[in-house]
Design a protein around this nucleic acid. Structure first.
Lengths: 324, 324
DNA sequence: ATGAAAGCGCTAACAA
DNA sequence: TTGTTAGCGCTTTCAT
């Protein structure tokens, strides 16, 4: 494993010159450059990034933390982030927190320890104070609403999304509307819940506590939710569901039991994932990939000390299909 | 940003001792250890992983390359790998290749450059020679069949999977069986294709070239495949589909057009993804997460110079539902 | 149980 | 345009 010094020797130049060639610096005479390149070929030289990282004080790696990779929302988000990283020649370190604050802290250390140049919070349950403190160690961007004023945020207006769906359902005469969300402690969960119950009171809709479900993420969770809804003595006539996966699960199970959708139970999802087309789910289109791309691009900017807006809001859109 | 030297000074010990405390080495007197710990607290010391990585010659990071993160198969695989990484305190660098050999090479460099301690090939289109050469720079594990003898492989027996489905369909009297796969150049694609056509001839099944589809990955791709099948002058009576997503898409579209499944068109998928339950898809269960976990665990072993089997085969299982 | 000293391999400020 | 030199911050061998 030959190192830079050997290249320098063989090419009869200084290590600096070799380094310059490696980094495409100007001010290197073509002859020398060629000599270096030749030596590199001959000795089969391979640079060592750890040395470079240490010396430069950066790694060209950014991290992203999500509860779980294998969820369409997050893998979509990561795809967007990853695409953008490719553009900048950054690598992407992915960590699953499982919504466990301990695991989050563990990953945050990588930012403190200079292993990553920046961090994207896909979703995060840690306190604002934790994020605030962390932000003094490195650059952070959040993909959801956060109280922390030190972190640029790129997200969609979940309140507005909820408002669109509730208004839409109300306009169709629904008075008994249930709610099903994912993690109630994440930024997204908090916004949606708050928005829903605000409207719920404002419009004086009917309400029974067991019309509320949380921590539901998958198609299979949807099966269970559907079962619970259908065995309730007093059913909602419509459900606002924070995830297309869960919504699809509800539809599958509901139809299986012979209940008509939307006549007996209307469903509105969230995300406009491919599956929603399949089950003809009315849903809120959310530009997930764009959120990821934007987040990565913002992070890149702040790493390079450029100013960025502290809020970036992307548009939501109601997609009408046949489930409501 | 205080560094190790300052801790040493403040605690009145050598840097070596500080390092020992940091790394939980034995042979440190409790008093000294406490003094060091105290200094660390007081100075708010934060270690620098790049320095450590350079010094130790490893990073505790492994990489995984997949065509696309946002596909249930791969995000599931990554989840498994990620879970296992958490156990070993390894971090996971994820890269999307888009099945582009260029992009693969780019990522492979990280192994050469010592940025990652090992590499998992989720799916890869590079030549065996590339992988062979790469393996002299670092540890690699593949999650699919590969010609390279230098790389331990953990995978399922795709030939057997195909055999099970074809046998199952044939036993039901199907003679016109179509095939739909993903990337025909990946290890998985090659195996499945070969196995299918072998049986196809062996059983003297009927065949028309337009019963074959490749590069199909998503639900939406499934819509298109279905449309194409349904407008064919001579349709297959059954389809073997290499992905539950695509299979689900085919089912959605087919049903929409009022075609009966499985009576008019039988479908068998592959993966046993959650969606397959929803659409009642007959499919081959593939322990994706376990593949990921196994791969990560093997990689960990070979990084630590332990011997591992060069093939690890996981079991496949036909899950009968209502689509065939 | 502890410390001195020699790395790990590359970069960059400065001088020439 | 090039080289000298002093780092980057931590680990580890070896001697004590």
């Amino acid at each position: 494993m030959s190192k830079l010094t050997e290249i320098a020797k063989r090419a009869n130049v200084s290590r600096t010159t070799v380094s310059r060639v490696l980094n495409n610096h100007p001010y290197v005479k073509p002859e020398k450059r060629d000599a270096v390149l030749k030596a590199i070929k001959e000795l089969n030289y391979v640079p060592n990034l750890n040395a470079r990282n240490l010396s430069k004080g950066k790694t060209n790696v950014i991290g992203v933390i999500v509860p779980k990779i294998n969820h369409p929302f997050f893998s979509n988000l990561i795809e967007g982030i990853g695409n953008e990283c490719n553009k900048y020649n950054y690598s992407l370190l992915v960590h699953q927190s499982n919504n466990d604050p301990e695991k989050e802290l563990q990953f945050f250390d990588l930012l403190k320890y200079k292993m990553i140049d920046g961090l994207i919070l896909g979703s995060c349950v840690s306190d604002t104070s934790v994020i605030d403190e962390l932000s003094s160690y490195g650059k952070i961007v959040s993909c959801e609403y956060s109280e922390s004023s030190k972190v640029p945020k790129v997200f969609v207006n979940h309140e507005y999304g909820i408002q669109m769906t509730v208004d839409y359902l109300k306009a169709q005469g629904h008075q008994k509307i249930g709610l099903c969300i994912g993690n109630p402690r994440s930024g997204v969960g908090i916004s949606r819940k708050k928005a829903f119950f605000k409207l719920q009171r404002e419009y004086s809709l009917k309400w029974i506590d067991y019309w509320y479900f949380e921590k539901q993420y998958t198609i299979e969770d949807g099966f269970e939710v559907a079962k619970k809804i259908l065995e309730q003595p007093s059913r909602p006539t419509a459900m606002v569901v924070g995830s297309d996966q869960v919504a699809a699960g509800i539809i599958f199970e509901t139809k299986k039991q012979g209940i008509m959708i939307p006549e007996e139970l209307a469903i509105v999802g969230f995300d406009n994932q491919p599956i929603s087309k399949g089950v003809e789910l009315t849903t809120i289109n959310q530009p997930i990939k764009e959120i990821g791309e934007n987040a990565a691009s913002l992070l890149y900017s702040i790493i390079h000390n450029q100013d960025v807006p502290s809020f970036t809001t992307l548009e939501l859109q109601l997609i009408k299909r046949n489930s409501a």
